[in-house]
Amino acid sequence: MPHAFYKRRQLFFNTIHCVEDIPFERFEDAVNSYNDLAFPQLSDLALSQTMADLCRNWPVGAAPIQVKDPVSSMVPTLILQGAYDRRTPVFMGKRAARELENSTYVLVPQSGHEVWSYAGDCVGQIAGAFIQDPDADLDLSCLVARQPQWVLPRDQ
């Protein structure tokens, strides 16, 4: 059963991207997304070409171009963005924050696409606080411990 679930999930993923994303993207956009990653070396730019090739023969048509129009809303919105997110690059989260006038943007260090999976962890606490009071200042201090700690080799 788990195998069937993951297969359906992959079919769903491919369909959404072949309908809403790939028909409206240019390769230079993929290059820009790649270059915006904190560590582009950990990604694979060839994946964009692979997905475009897959979509050429996927049995769906492109959505209307309006799916790419900016969304405008005054509803309080929390945007949780993983600093290492390949699926939804940082520039997209920042663009959503600009377009949603009443949004709060939180960049989560050392995180990929799935930044929030447990209500009791740091990001879950931030999200819970936002839901309780969207107008309050969020306590992001728990993210400090998630900042990368770089250690350079000693001079020889």
Rank of each mutant, 00 (worst) to 15 (best):
Q66P: 00
R26W: 05
K68S: 15
P109S: 02
D135A: 15
E114N: 09
Q125W: 03
Q41P: 00
L45T: 07
Q125L: 10
K68T: 15
L80V: 14
T104S: 08
S48Y: 13
A136Y: 00
D139G: 07
L78T: 03
F130L: 07
N14A: 11
V90F: 08
L11K: 11
Q110A: 13
R98F: 05
A127G: 00
V108G: 07
Q132M: 12
N32S: 15
G112Q: 01
S103P: 01
H3R: 15
E20D: 14
Q66Y: 05
D139V: 09
E99I: 03
F39H: 14
I16G: 08
D135W: 07
K68N: 15
S73Y: 00
R95I: 08
D137F: 05
L11F: 11
M51Y: 11
V60S: 06
N14R: 08
S72C: 02
Q125T: 09
P148G: 04
L45C: 07
G93D: 08
Q125C: 02
Q147H: 12
A46L: 08
L11Y: 08
I126M: 11
R146V: 05
P59R: 01
L42E: 06
C142K: 08
G82C: 01
W58Q: 06
C122D: 14
D36T: 12
Q156I: 12
V71A: 11
D53W: 09
L152E: 09
P40G: 09
H17M: 13
E28R: 13
A38F: 04
T50K: 14
A96H: 13
L47K: 10
P153T: 05
Q147T: 12
F24K: 03
E20A: 11
A62N: 00
V108D: 04
P40S: 10
R98W: 02
I16A: 12
V144W: 05
N102G: 03
P134S: 06
G112Y: 07
V144L: 13
E28Q: 11
P134F: 01
V90E: 14
F91V: 14
G82E: 02
V71W: 07
W58E: 05
L78S: 06
F27R: 05
L140N: 10
I126C: 03
P76V: 03
V90I: 15
Q110F: 05
D155R: 15
C18R: 08
